[in-house]
Design a protein around this nucleic acid. Structure first.
Lengths: 339, 339
DNA sequence: CTACATTATGACACCGGTGTCAGGGTTGAA
DNA sequence: TTCAACCCTGACACCGGTGTCATAATGTAG
């Protein structure tokens, strides 16, 4: 046998036409049971597999989804944000459960990313994932919508299209963190992260956090905020700069766990004790969080559910069904860094 | 414009034949420069993208690789081994660098996994990754080879085909770990992991470890070995059972970092101090390792290089080039758990 | 001016399936 | 006996590209 078997080969050996082979293999009710059996046997013997390219070409769909992972351009090349890796895992599983394949692709946030997986008929839809500067992306989103490309987006909202977003209730998560610190009477709080509209998720976390404090009659000081992207390094440097400027605080809310871990390192280095001197709360509950010293209190995002919802919503969009905005409830995981 | 543009649409608007469009877009030297320019303009205007299915069908190749990730069936559903996630990241990058797409798929080690991505022409080759029980897989490997499926395998060797394997020098890594413990005179050592032929990687690590001790005239006691798969839980329980049996040791080598982290938890719980009472060394250098308490000494595998080599070797196999067995050098990362 | 190489293009078969349509064979009722 | 209904199957166009071959147009040498 030279090359891979085609449906014609099977037709030949089974003594039927190629049309019948195709029908038999796809369990068309039109085919006689005996014929089907014979076809299946020959197919198995020849180790026949349907050529997906031919099949997809004809049916104009691919049973494949594409995942675009945006990385913070300044992040260390070698390490990928563990939160997104966890998401990737759950998305892969959710795809498999639905009988879809998953194409994974990394995109640099800075570069002019392309979402041509659907245009080229390689995928039926696209999942966008990352802590990107979504402000820059709204134009891109518009053109995707215009081209009728099916996509869903994690975290950030798409103008006028709430149905295209799945996200954690970042605002509510921020409130959870604030309430926790307030219960321990740690009212003098620093915030590390980007609270601008460029990082909508971080922004929402900060808003919820601030509002909860406000509702307790406390106004957070702008001086106690430091900008950081979601890396350990960035969290470390931001916190160092606060310390260097002699800014005092007895608690710290980081916009992500990686930032929190960097913050803890900076605090320790400065001889500031966690949690005795400063209570620290992060966001995400990445795997590392439970192993830090002290273990990190954090707001957990349910990545398993998130992956499922992204895939489910995208498939609904592809099928033309109506999708509603999906907000997933966060939960507070209390560990040693704030007890 | 209804539906997506095809090369015929472009041909129509550019006033040339469809053949010429195809040639122009693929920069064939046969096409006149002006014609090409016109074609490109029209293509851009219509937002044309080559239909990959049609293209792949005709050329019989897909510019896509498939990654099969095997999970330990007993591992926690929700969490994926961080070492493999790191590999996934580097493989994705390596693929992108070579202009290939990557299909990711999780496979349960227990189930009868299928590698039909190549048979169905969806991928040009397959990367196998996981701590599977490779003994069971040799038959599968044989049939893959017989069908002329292109694949490379991380870690475990394929009978008679060293060129299909990329792995870390696990034996050498084991020796590194042993030499390190011996330098600190921690000769009374426990081993946690599976040292059977079912886990060839763990087995090699143990062999190297043992041989290094032997070369120093020390024979490791079988009583101080406990079986574990690569999870924190498993490492925890294995270590607990050693302690429960009153087995004494002043150092511990774990076949993987996750196991080591579980072991540290068990030791702490039993009031045994790390590193004072017991030095602990792991294997992999996963991201968590530097955040444990104390930070974990471990044998590092270069995941970036590993991903590159897997992709490079696979592409060579696909192109019919000769590939040599690839052994990547490990390196020892010394941290607080053994100082 | 003829002979032949060179360049640019179009026509067409082909990749391996899917879906439609027509038709052969059997059965059963009129 | 005839006709319809039903079941099953084969022939064939089609999806959207790629690659080969033929050919027209232009150039170049003898």
């Amino acid at each position: 046998m030279k090359g891979k078997a085609t449906s014609f080969d099977i037709a030949h050996y089974a003594g039927v036409s190629q049309s019948t082979v195709s029908r038999a293999l796809r369990n068309s009710p039109l085919v006689n049971e005996e014929t089907r059996k014979r076809v299946f046997e020959v197919a198995k013997q020849l180790n026949y597999k349907v050529d997906k390219n031919a099949s997809n070409l004809r049916t104009q769909q691919s049973s494949t989804l594409a995942l675009l992972l945006f990385e913070d351009p300044t992040a260390d090349e070698s390490q990928i944000n563990p939160f997104f890796l966890a998401m990737l895992g759950s998305i892969t599983r959710a795809c498999a459960a639905q009988g879809y394949d998953l194409l994974v692709s990394f995109q640099s946030t800075s570069a002019d990313w392309q979402a041509d997986y659907e245009d080229s008929h390689r995928a039926d839809g696209i999942i966008l994932l990352g802590y990107g500067d979504y402000v820059d992306y709204q134009a891109k989103f518009s053109s995707l919508i215009e081209q009728n490309t099916k996509f869903v987006c994690w975290g950030a909202s798409v103008d006028n299209r709430p149905d295209l977003t799945v996200s954690c209730d970042n605002y509510g998560g921020g409130k959870l963190a604030a309430a926790h610190l307030l219960r321990a009477n740690r009212k003098d709080c620093a915030f590390i992260g980007d609270a601008s509209e460029h990082s909508p998720e971080f922004f929402a976390r900060y808003q919820g956090f601030k509002d909860e404090f406000n509702q307790h009659g406390i106004t957070l000081s702008e001086r106690k905020m430091a900008n950081a992207i979601s890396t350990e390094e960035s969290g470390y440097h931001a916190t160092r700069s606060l310390i260097a400027n002699n800014i005092h605080f007895n608690s710290l809310f980081a916009a992500s766990d990686l930032i929190a871990i960097g913050a803890i390192r900076a605090l320790k280095e400065a001889g500031i004790k966690v949690p005795d001197d400063v209570h620290v709360v992060g966001f995400d509950n990445i795997a590392v969080a439970s192993f830090t010293n002290p273990p990190l209190t954090t707001v957990q995002q349910d990545t398993t559910l998130a992956g499922q919802m992204l895939v489910d919503n995208l498939l609904k969009l592809i099928r033309g069904e109506v999708v509603e905005n999906t907000l997933l409830p966060p939960s507070l995981i209390i560990r040693g860094s704030s007890i």
